[in-house]
């Protein structure tokens, strides 16, 4: 009866409430953009340093984390549906210093998809 319990819980989001909330959320987003456009007169410069050493060996980080652990072959994983996540480095600033942190993100994230496609395209060329 755990199942039933969960179902009861998951149900019942008032559609009116959901619609109102969606509208409010959109408003906040829209106004945030509006506000930024007003604040920033003229386009700001690109002002970021990406430490190039990060990119070295990026291919090595590019392994999936499947059920079976460290299988290196992506194609195999995908077909088996085993590897759901990829490891990325998130680049953040700590004061003026850059730092990276390892994260796992879902393989179907658009972040991964795009670069995969690009890589594939490049590979074909």
């Amino acid at each position: 009866d755990d199942e039933v319990h969960v179902r009861q819980k998951v149900a019942e989001v008032d559609p009116q409430e959901a619609a109102n909330f969606e509208q409010e959320l959109r408003a906040v987003m829209q106004e945030s953009i509006e506000q930024r456009r007003q604040e920033l007169r003229g386009r700001p410069m690109l002002n970021m340093v990406i430490p190039m050493n990060l990119f070295e060996g990026s291919a090595r980080d590019h392994h999936g984390r499947g059920v079976g652990g460290d299988s290196g072959d992506e194609a195999l994983d995908e077909e088996a549906g085993g590897s759901k996540e990829v490891q990325v480095k998130v680049l953040v600033k700590r004061g003026n210093k850059q730092q990276t942190k390892q994260m796992y993100i879902p393989r179907d994230s658009s972040l991964v998809q795009s670069t995969k496609q690009k890589e594939a395209a490049e590979f074909e060329e």
């Binding site: 990406i50 980080d61 998130v90 680049l91 953040v92 993100i105 972040l111 991964v112 670069t115 890589e119």
Partner: peptide, 12 residues
């Protein structure tokens, strides 16, 4: 988030 050139490095 956006990929910084390669998928293995992302930034906000």
């Amino acid at each position: 988030f956006i990929s910084a050139k390669t998928e293995s490095v992302v930034v906000l």
